[in-house]
Design a protein around this nucleic acid. Structure first.
Lengths: 358, 358
DNA sequence: TTTTTAATTGACAGCGCTTGTATATTTGGC
DNA sequence: GCCAAATATACAAGCGCTGTCAATTAAAAA
């Protein structure tokens, strides 16, 4: 007879599964169900032209044998990898933004045959070449890009050349065929509107990093709200930031040293808002009594800090999820175009109140 | 002649690479270098019995053609996936802890032929079965487990049965052959020692969630420090927590309502420390003037909050990195055992000071 | 019923790589 | 210069799956 370890058919089925703990193969399922391998493959891949009774029998066999298709074999034969790659930058410090997006991406893959590969790429000059290498190795069926890569026109161009489906999150570029985001401009206007409705007249703004869509959109929203309230835009109340805590501290210093300092500050993200709160703390200013502070993003810190930070909850997880779902659709329908705007949430907490009130 | 799209050899090399953007195959490299496929394979897989001049020529060809081996084909043929899977729980909320570990894991894979697959598994009863499915699908060469899965004896047992190499991070179990961590007990003792050295005599402690090694170790460290300072352990100063902000708030309430409230509180993680700070804030207590607070973990919030939170920086990234490196070694040497303790850092910030001082 | 057409199923090749066997070539020690 | 050891080649097989296309079956039409 055959050596046990190598025999793989018929009678030794029991031995393979129960004793050798070897995973079942499609061939085993086919034998168990009494059909051809190809038919099992059809069921696995969601083809509809399999008669109901056969389909049921096959599905039972799959369950009985605990069969799960081997991803590598599938990928090799089908010229599809069942991989969605998430490309982000800054390998050394993952922001809570990216973290949340990742959660959404993984969530969207769950229950599908697709899996996520995460890959940090720093924004080097040879980015396109490095993407080529990455693609050659993994052949991802789709990519999801977050800023700043989502704003890299050369990169998108290269992906078009390679004919790889991708979706972006919060991209500034019109080249992106599928983009997921939310109305940042309106959200910023909403939160500044909230400060205005509390009675604030002089509202400072700390902007985001140049080149990011977020900087532009949030700044525009700030201006929109002021305009709507009939308050003149005062350039001296707007300070450049770069999304870091330190920038928030520095900006707060500038704003609080102003001849007529603002009674509220809207920072373009939560980290900078924390920096503003730090500077207020150092100066012994009470929040919101002497200064109201608002952030943007809804990172975990906004809940943990005291007082709780008023902010906009950005739907990061939902965006990650939607980005994957859309791009998977686009695999089937390459002509697909989509600009999806997801709902955001104003998160009113204790850091904002009427001016002069404790 | 041949149809362009299908011709793959010799003269059409240029066409394939430059125009069709098709990735090179091992066969192309062999042709380019004028050697056999097998020899290229040897170089790729690090066999030493290839003469230097051939090796150099092949490596040049690889670079010239931008050749990257197809991961699926390699995995299928070689019965190795070059995949390291990171299993963690709680799919809906990735902690900054996990995120940092992920960064370390990805970093460790960078430059090796290995890649990381992330997979959240909630701690369900059928965990072992779901792991089986995951393993059947991806055939990871190695796994990295973080708590709580790292403490799941049945799971580790199953991995032994499946003969899959794994490493754990901060596991409580002695079954784990490779475990990476740091001396949490000593770190906790250090930070409590810091409070003692500032002159605090009554120090409260908010513990972690039951079942976690972190709870036990940090609590033991707390007791160690008190014992060393000759201070009697006072059970009424220790309150159960579960690592959440809300638990920190609740615990602070209990401790601050104490007949003789503590002058300092050591929370078993940063989130709970933030909860303690929130309750102090609500009561108008100044930190560190009227209450010193220490956390544990060194999450981003510890820097962003005001005053800055004194804490222990847990070497998450380094642990993720080390866990991968060790488990990859273990693939070569299955008998390997390792209990690695990495250095941690006391992060002294403004939330701790001498009692009664502002 | 028989013929035509459509839907379902199966046999087989092959995805790109690694491994093994068998054979050929080179190298260096004496 | 010869012989053994080290290195390289050719070739075939096969990893587990899917694509192509032909064979079969069922349904519709005659």
């Amino acid at each position: 007879m055959f050596a046990l370890g190598f025999e793989r058919h018929g009678a030794t089925q029991y031995i393979r599964d129960e004793i050798l703990h070897m995973a079942a193969r499609i061939e085993d399922v086919a034998a168990h169900a009494g059909v051809s391998v190809k038919t099992v493959s059809r069921v696995l891949n969601g083809y509809t032209n399999v008669r109901a009774n056969l389909r049921a029998r096959i599905e039972t066999s799959i369950k009985d044998l605990n069969y799960v298709p081997n991803a590598s074999a599938r990928s090799l034969a089908g010229n599809r990898s069942y991989l969605v790659a998430l490309l982000y930058d800054n390998p050394t410090a993952v922001s809570s933004y990216i973290m949340d997006v990742i959660v959404g991406v993984l969530q969207a893959c769950d229950g599908t045959p697709y899996n996520a590969v995460l890959h940090p790429f720093d924004a080097a000059d040879d980015l396109a070449a490095r993407i080529d290498g990455f693609v050659a190795q993994h052949r991802p069926d789709a990519l999801v890009l977050v800023p700043p890569h989502a704003n890299n026109a050369r990169l998108l161009q290269r992906l078009h050349e390679l004919d790889i489906r991708y979706s972006t999150i919060s991209s500034k570029l019109r080249e992106s065929c599928i983009d997921i985001g939310f109305d940042e401009r309106k959200a910023a206007a909403d939160i500044v509107g909230h400060l205005l409705s509390l009675g604030h007249q002089r509202i400072g703004h700390v902007t985001g990093l140049k080149g990011h869509g977020a900087r532009t959109w949030r700044h525009s929203g700030y201006r929109d709200a002021l305009r709507k309230a009939g308050i003149a835009y005062d350039e001296s109340l707007v300070v450049d930031g770069d999304f870091t805590f330190a920038a928030g501290v520095a900006a707060a210093r500038t704003l609080l040293d102003h001849d007529r300092p603002p009674t509220a500050i809207f920072a373009a993200n939560d980290d900078m808002a924390c920096g503003v709160m730090r500077e207020a703390y150092e100066r012994g200013l009470t929040i919101p009594g002497q200064l109201s502070v608002c952030g943007f993003d809804g990172t975990p810190v906004s809940q943990l800090i005291s007082p709780g930070l008023t902010t906009v909850r950005q739907p990061c997880r939902e965006m990650g999820c939607a980005a994957v779902e859309s791009v998977l659709q686009a695999i089937r329908d390459p002509a697909m175009r989509q600009q999806e705007r997801l709902p955001y949430q104003l998160q009113l907490r204790e850091s904002s109140a009427a001016p002069g009130k404790s």
